[in-house]
Nucleic acid binder design. Structure first.
Lengths: 200, 200
DNA sequence: TTGTTAAACGTAGGGTGTCTACGTTAATCT
DNA sequence: AGATTAACGTAGACACCCTACGTTTAACAA
């Protein structure tokens, strides 16, 4: 029988490996913020003073780098759901959380592009990368639907995708007010029973 | 007075130049549809059986290629505005045109990404590339505002950007129904007086 | 037809980026 | 201290972007 692999020494991870990993994430955060998520990975490695091979060893694909860079931000967004849900009614909570999302898009320049890889997967659970943003937005929309303040046929992730679309292009300084208006527009649209069976 | 520059032979454009230009556009259309608007320009040149230098001679920047490729499509969208405005009320015309926009996004795979360069400029007239899509969408929204069926503070281009955001990621086959729902959501949101003097 | 002109062409190459192969270094554990 | 092997960096194959430069050839004139 296939016994458990006998030797399982479980050596402690090497210190230099962990150190370089953090250096790389930190460098990528800076480079992505400056040049966007399509920036050169070689440049990231140079900034971290680590060889390009080490970068690929830690993060086999570009998406892995992106996920690592924005993990903190995504965690914060996820964490905010509970407190918002506790202190706001469903519609207000949804609006507030979308505003938070816009703020994150604003804080990190490269984030809007990066979102494509974070929310790009299919909307269901089959996504190969665990779309951790699916949970909060789905929960908030679900709560609003239960409360009867929004239509049930809206794909939650599409709200984020729409905001990303507005945020991807940010030639002007006032892009954020555009994004805020878009949040209001989306929330207003969701709370409207458009026409039921429209035009028919 | 500054006389007209004396020598103005105005030679007829060379046939091979025009031919290659068309070959390049045709090839780019195929490659972009398959690989997206970020595809290799060298591959486009190979597909067109033209040297890479000739590609750059005809289209100095990638955006020039994109503009040329989607010129027909954009023209069709622009042309549709008049007939829609003549046959539909303002809100229905806007909705119908946005649906048309979604259809174009559906027909050409690379178009959603390409939109970033076509509608990426600032929303005013200072855009360096003539954002020809600004005119139709602005006209349609303006008409709806005049008719009092939508709020005046929505940035027209943002509607297209939001739809592009939804369309950029199309892992599933049913992305189009998501886009259609998004159109309904946007139209519904616009027709709502969210915060101001509501219901009036 | 033949010659002139210059528009358009293709080859070649420098620079940058992606990703991998492979020999070397050094952190961990005995 | 010595053994083990995780992690490292150098180097290189390959693709792409973009330009310099010499060559070809379409358009026009004689």
């Amino acid at each position: 029988m296939p016994a458990i692999p006998p030797s399982k020494p479980t050596r402690r991870p090497r210190a230099d490996g962990e150190r370089n990993r953090l250096l790389l994430i930190d460098a990528a955060k800076r480079i992505f913020a400056e040049k966007g998520a399509a920036a050169s990975l070689e440049q990231v490695a140079r900034e971290a003073k680590v060889s390009i091979a080490s970068l690929y060893r830690h993060f086999p694909t570009r998406d892995d780098v992106i996920s690592a860079v924005y993990r903190q931000e995504v965690d914060a967004l996820i964490g905010a759901v509970d407190s918002l849900a506790a202190t706001h009614d469903p519609e207000a909570a949804l609006r507030a959380w979308l505003m938070l999302f816009v703020n994150f898009l604003d804080a990190k320049h490269g984030m809007a592009e990066a979102m494509n890889t974070l929310i790009g997967g299919p909307e269901d659970l089959y996504s190969k990368t665990p779309d951790r943003l699916v949970l909060p937005i789905t929960a908030l929309v679900g709560r609003a639907v239960e409360a009867g303040v929004c239509q049930p046929d809206v794909e939650p992730l599409d709200l984020l995708r729409a905001l990303s679309g507005v945020a991807t292009i940010r030639v002007t300084e006032n892009w954020k007010s555009s994004a805020v208006r878009m949040v209001e527009l989306l929330v207003a649209g969701m709370s409207t029973r458009t026409t039921g069976r429209d035009t028919r």
